[in-house]
Amino acid sequence: MNAPAPAVKKLRVATTSLAGCFGCHMSFLDIDERIIPLLDLIEFDRSPLTDIKHCGPCDLGIIEGGLCNAENVHVLREFRKNCKFLVAMGACAINGGLPAQRNHLDLRDVLEEVYQTEAGLSHGGIPNDPELPLPLNQVHPIHEVVKIDYFLPGCPPPADAIWKLLTDLLAGRTPSLGHGLMHYD
């Protein structure tokens, strides 16, 4: 009565979105029906698709989005601690992306305009509850805080680029996008 032992050890993958729009995760799902055979080869740890709330020991961590608040930094460090390889997926993780457009503005001004002086408000006030993580003054790329092993450019990176990265890693190769999969749009 032995339970059948799994033939191959699956690649354990965690993914998260920090200050990102989830578009990179959508592009991951854009591998379409290839996701079904892929599930025989990888298993998900923390990810928007599972109910695991914190990253455990993993082979691969994929990060979407840059850092806009203290909570983002905390999650990123947790990923670095637990993942053998860490991937910066998309423009926001690599250089801050669109959210970093606020970097030339004063955070307090922005908060005031949105929550205090905006015309349609019945009564204003900048949200300040301790449950809200502290916003950072600037949006930062993730490599400024932890070491990143691979960078996947694009906004979002094409699904085929994400697929190439995964299949290279599964085959034990150093991931390389090569011509045609390097997009910056």
Partner: peptide, 25 residues
């Protein structure tokens, strides 16, 4: 728990960029 300030940083951008920029929300 997250704040992005989109309404503010879009100010000053040429209007034809907007439909492409806002998608990144």
């Amino acid at each position: 728990v997250e704040f992005r300030g989109f309404e503010k940083f879009i100010q000053g951008r040429p209007y034809w960029e907007v439909p492409v920029m806002v998608q990144r929300l």
